[in-house]
Design a protein around this nucleic acid. Structure first.
Lengths: 389, 389
DNA sequence: CTGTTAGCGCATTCAG
DNA sequence: CTGAATGCGCTAACAG
């Protein structure tokens, strides 16, 4: 009764009066073999009586495969990632997998180490959430929108950008490091592990893509429809693919509407609340050109920072300047004025990524390894319709 | 070169021309045994050349112990938990442990299953974050504050409370289930695993306690000092220990100041944004008694919901009613008006819990298995000083 | 359908 | 100080 250490299968087998193999088959339900009903019942009964449960390590060892799923995020305390993580956790649980989490910060080496670990661990799959580097993840088959990269300049924002400690590289990788990561993932994949990345494509890996450019373009058109004509963009780091896609999608759509965003009104900054704050503060402080009517921050957290900067400057949103974001972070639902944004179903994205990585059905395009999730424009108080002038 | 499957130790041994045992000792640095320098170098070199890394499952098996740390939260997408998780992840990484995450929702059975899994997995430790049940976690040595439980009534809030789907039990356990959980944890602990709970004591388990009652009392005194005299409390679920401690600490301190909170102004509700919203809406809608001057919500998320309710009712914070919260959730730093709250260092708490669970130094009281973290009152715009009447 | 046996990769006895 | 042998708990051939 008080024998220490967990009960093993062989104890169950002995208790049930069967062989180890039979016990294993009864409890685990081997694929090919089957066990006579009465024997199985006896084994199950013994297992229950002894409060047996299998040793995951031993199973992993014997099977050559774990029931684990690796999840890599930059920062689990960031609501963007924690929402994705919630989706991953839910889907993983449904599949009977345990998730091992790595909150890697801005350290590519850490990501690499974790992927390597996950490979050695023979995890079922690994999911990579978070912004990759720009140069390395291009896909010839999916060129960026028709608007040249040069649509986003950083002249106006260089100073703010440089002034922040935490933005040495905007939270993305050096090219070499990204290459190593992709390679590690490919290796893992070749060895039978599932892989999915979230956000935008990385190499040829399966991806749950967020239609960043399109969402931003939709947003731009909607805002233009509200009467706005002079826009600014807090563009995030210039090397951050998601940030750039959003900024370009936004600027490009305006361009098509015959509404140009001047380079001075597009400022690079960190992909954080403080990045948004600082960049907006810069816009507010300068005298030339004048403050845009509306500033689009490429994510909600930045937008909230920007709104704080506006308040701290003694100005008001939306009276003095309207603000829009991207993501529709749930926790920020109640900021005032309510933030216009592009809703991104992060939790569902986490689930989709999990299913995709595991080779389960993940929607129509899943077999192509490329699932695209659309954002949805949500107009709220931070960008009221502009009266005709 | 392209042999599939990860490299094993014996391959390294062969490559280095030594025995398996020597390779193991060289790479792992066995405690007792030591390896001659040149041999060790040869092994290490071979390992590097072959890009060897150990199989965690095999190590776990041979050692009878994993390098994993289990983390149980109710909902990883809740900023409270994700902040704690960030601290846990950071500390775990520092100790070379991988963290396996369970986001258990409101399902005690799931928590139990996870703790069981973690035990079988022979994880190093498990950390439990999230509200336990009231009746089961009392500690005679630490009675609740001098204010009777009955200080919090639910007459005023029953209706709202009942009307919410997600509040069947406010996110806590049935007594029996909580008992089973505690028992599972004790078992795990007896078998050599480390345990820590976050928030408030559970049985005799090591705990990183948040000084909820005291923080709330400090807040009450500070607000009283600002001139407030009529208070309401959005008290959260009546069975939620953290919620009750905060509510009672608040009410009790006011009592000592000769300022009574009438039962009608204390409403129970879900421990969520919507819970706060609904409860506040109830206060706003009723005619008798009048709206309190200030409403204290027992956490920030609820407070933000409450502020939304105020706005939606066409009233204003703090002009019509002041609002205060608890936790100082980072993501909510920029809500307007800025929220008065009690700052709780969640990330550090996660680290402390990790260290405590692992038996590392976790501050002065760590050896007693009871580390207490103080909150700090932060007065902001949502509770301006009241002009003398 | 069931039982016997051989590893999975590694740490760790025990001999040498 | 090193090497050969044993076993962790389990699954998956392999016989019976």
């Amino acid at each position: 009764m008080s024998s220490d250490g967990p009960i093993t299968l062989s104890q169950v087998a002995r208790e049930a009066g069967v062989s180890l193999a039979t016990a294993s088959r009864a409890i685990n339900g081997s694929a090919t073999r089957t066990v006579r009903a009465d024997l199985r019942e006896r084994v199950l009964e013994a297992a229950r009586r002894l409060d047996y449960s299998p040793d995951p390590s031993a199973q992993a060892m014997a099977r050559g495969r774990t029931a684990a799923l690796g999840l890599v995020v930059h920062d689990i305390s960031d609501p963007y990632f924690s929402a994705i993580a919630a989706g991953v956790a839910a889907a993983a649980e449904r599949e009977g997998l345990i998730v091992t989490l790595a909150s890697t910060g801005l350290r590519p080496a850490r990501e690499l180490a974790f992927v390597e670990l996950v490979r050695r661990q023979r995890a079922r799959a690994v999911i990579l959430a978070g912004g990759r580097l720009l140069p390395d993840d291009g896909d010839p088959a999916h060129p960026s929108p028709a608007h040249p990269r040069s649509a986003v300049r950083h002249e106006g924002g260089t100073q703010e950008y440089r002034s922040r400690d935490d933005v040495p590289n905007g939270g993305t990788h050096g090219v070499a490091e990204a290459g190593a990561l992709v390679q590690a993932l490919e290796t893992f994949r070749r060895s039978g592990g599932g892989v999915a990345v979230v956000g935008q494509a990385v190499g040829e890996l399966p991806v749950v893509e967020i239609a960043n450019a399109q969402g931003a373009a939709d947003l731009a058109r909607a805002l233009h429809g509200l009467g706005y004509r002079r826009f600014g963009v807090l563009a995030g780091p210039l090397v951050h693919r998601t940030a750039v896609d959003r900024a370009e999608g936004f600027v490009g759509a305006l361009h098509e509407l015959g509404c140009e965003v001047v380079p001075e009104d597009v400022v690079a900054c960190a992909f954080t609340r403080d990045g948004g704050y600082t960049a907006m503060a810069g816009l507010l402080a300068r005298t030339e050109p004048a403050l845009p009517e509306l500033v689009f921050a490429v994510n909600d957290v930045m937008a909230v920072g920007a709104m704080a900067a506006v308040r701290d400057a003694g100005r008001r949103v939306p009276d003095d300047v309207a603000v829009a974001g991207f993501d529709d972070i749930h926790t920020l639902r109640d900021v005032t004025p309510a933030l216009t944004t592009v809703h991104v179903p992060l939790e569902r994205i986490g689930e989709l990524a999990t299913r995709l990585a595991l080779g389960l059905d993940a929607g129509e395009d899943a077999d192509t390894g490329r699932v695209t999730v659309q954002g949805e424009v949500v107009l709220r108080e931070s960008t009221p319709p502009l009266p005709p002038r």
